[in-house]
Structure formats: C-alpha cells, structure tokens
Amino acid sequence: MSQAPEILVRVDRAVKHYFRGSECVEVLHEVNLEIERGDFVGLIGPSGSGKTTLLNLIAGLDQPTSGHIFFAGNEISAMNESQLARWRTNAVGFVFQFFHLIPVLTAFENVELPLLLTNMSARRRRDHVRMVLKAVGLDHREHHRPGQLSGGEQQRVGIARALVTDPALIVADEPTGDLDSKKSKEILDLLQMLQEELHKTLLVVTHDPNVAGRTRRLLRIDSGRLIEDRCDANRPLPLRRAAPVAVSSNSAGLVDQPG
C-alpha cells in the first residue's frame, strides 16, 4: 500500500538579509523548498553559502527577512519569539557539531532537560530518558558527565537529547564535524536509524561527503540560492507507522507509545 508523501516543511520565497555595518548582505535569495515527512535531507555548499542560515530558518531559530516558512501546514515565520520557543520544544530536535551538552549535568540529566518543558511526570520522564539512552546505546553511561564521555558518546547523548521529545524534525549542523571516521560512521548509522525506524525527518548541514552520501535527498546551495536538488530514487521514504506518535507538550512519546 503506498501513501502520498506529506510535506512537513515548506519554504516559500525565503529571503534573508543581514546588515554588516551599513552594508546589506543577502544571505538567502528567494529560496523555495519542500521537505517530505520522513526524508533524510542533506544540505551542502561552500562556507558562507547560506546553508546554516536556511537550517536556522527551518528550525525556527531565525526569521526570514521576507517570505514564509511552514511546518506541517502552520506558518512558523509568523510566530513571535515565545511561540517559536514552545513550537521548537515539541517539533524540532537539535544536534550540534560540538555537542553542546551542559557540562554540569549527567548524560541522563542532559537528555531529560527538554522534557522539563513538558507536563510529563518525573517518573515517566525517568523511564522515557532511560529508554532513549538505551536506544542510542548509552544506558550504561547515564550517570556520567560530558567530560567523562568520548566525543562519539557525547554526540550520542546529543542525539538522545534531540530525540527525547519525539520531534517530527531533527536538524543537525555538521554532526560528525568533530569526530573521527569510525565515530562518524556510528553517528551516521544512528541518524539513519532515526529516519528509517522512527520515521524522523532529518535535515543535516554538512561538508562531509560520507554524510552527504548517506542522505536520501541532497540539496546544494551557493550564494544563497539552491542550485541542485538531487533525490535517490532507489531509496523510497520509509513507511509511516499506522498511527504516528502525536507531538505535544503533554506527551513526548517515542517508540514506547502505542503505534
């Protein structure tokens, strides 16, 4: 049985200007883009081409100078800062190049942090965090602080943190940029698992050809314009679960939710 692809993200003529002193710098020029739910999208391009800016707009961290950004049919570019913060909690997970874990918190507490923004009880939070840590293979390291973990392990904690609120979209900015090739492969395997088994939509900014090679769809950007959009037709989108997990502030369900 085939399902019609669902558009999760729609970027409509997005323009982004910055002012450097009195000089106006156009970082994005009328970008149009649609991302299907469950896709694994890579965004590549030279430094300063605007790929991180585009990622920030889609993730609700920045607003376009003009144009519109829609997420699951809702215009996030019309939201104020407070609304965007609430939206991000439920809809987007973030993975950073330098992990950006909170150094004073344990792996468990780092993963638990986004759940504090939900109404989940402490007991459910605990069970849920343990399950997510197990999913990324770090259940035995939950009491360790970031400083006591290797780079690969820290990035796994970062991925667990991005995953814990069960967001529809996970954005990653150079997720393997600070890792050796072996650890990079482990992280890429993990990201691919998120897409294929948990039906997460992934948007990854990268310079790494290995990462780009793993994506299903590859976007190339240069001077603020999308110049290439290539899709691997041999890799169909993973089938969605019959009843996708609802993302809400009340339930940050993951695979333990009834599917």
Binding site: S82, A85, R86, T89, N90, F94, F96, H100, I102, L117
Partner: peptide, 14 residues
C-alpha cells in the same frame, strides 16, 4: 553562555 544558548534553542523561554 553556550549552556544558556542551548537551553533557549531547546525551547526554554527568556
């Protein structure tokens, strides 16, 4: 400063 930034990105309000 980076901890605060990460928390803001996660959705913690100002």
């Amino acid at each position: 400063i980076k901890d605060i930034a990460v928390m803001r990105i996660m959705g913690f309000q100002a």
